[in-house]
């Protein structure tokens, strides 16, 4: 009989010999990991800088969020492709990753317009029972009464 038990994972047909050939191509050198590491650090620094950019946060929070999520997706791709070796795997990788990733992204994208933006159309009554938004006018002039009875005037100016 053969030396390999048929269910030995190291027997032919289980991908191990493929890995060995990959090794010969030198796909997973230490240099590549260091490069990915540096890229991840730089990307983290970018999202940190974007998040601590007061002007952007104030004027276009949507753009700020989108930038940070784009950076996160780039970092996630780097980790998946290089650290998790998905770049060099056979086609089975698509079956296990694409559907769940698609469902996840779809779920998140659908939640933003559905729920994330729901306060955009709150009625005046609804606001009465909502937590107080931080309003600039409210802290200021005590003699300026007009604005306080209508907090929704300011919501348009706030981040959505």
């Amino acid at each position: 009989m053969a030396e390999h038990h048929p269910f030995d994972p190291r027997s032919p047909g289980h991908g191990y010999e493929a890995e060995a050939t990959d090794q010969e191509h030198g796909h997973a050198g230490t240099g590549k990991y260091v490069a990915v590491f540096i890229a991840l650090c730089v990307l983290t620094a970018i999202s940190f800088a974007v998040g601590n950019w007061p002007t952007l946060r104030h004027s276009a929070p949507g753009a700020m969020w989108a930038m940070m999520m784009a950076v996160s997706c780039a970092k996630a791709m780097l980790v998946i492709l290089f650290f998790m070796h998905l770049m060099w795997e056979a086609n089975w990788k698509y079956v296990l990753t694409i559907p769940s990733a698609m469902m996840s992204i779809f779920l998140l994208l659908m939640l933003i317009p559905d729920i994330g933006r729901r306060t955009d159309r709150y009625s005046e009554e609804r606001w009465l029972y909502a937590a107080e938004p931080e309003e600039k006018n409210e802290h200021g002039d005590e003699t300026e009464h007009g604005n306080h009875d209508h907090p929704e005037h300011d919501h348009g100016k706030q981040k959505h």
């Binding site: 769940s100 469902m103 996840s104 992204i105 779920l107 998140l108 939640l111 933003i112 729920i115 994330g116 933006r117 729901r118 306060t119 955009d120 709150y122 606001w127 909502a130 937590a131 107080e132 938004p133 931080e134 309003e135 919501h155 706030q158 981040k159 959505h160």
Partner: peptide
């Protein structure tokens, strides 16, 4: 994804600002 979805629902569900 479900957990982060929950976060989005709760975080963006609060009054703006």
């Amino acid at each position: 994804a479900g957990l982060i979805g929950t976060y989005i629902v709760l975080r963006f569900g609060v009054p703006a600002g």
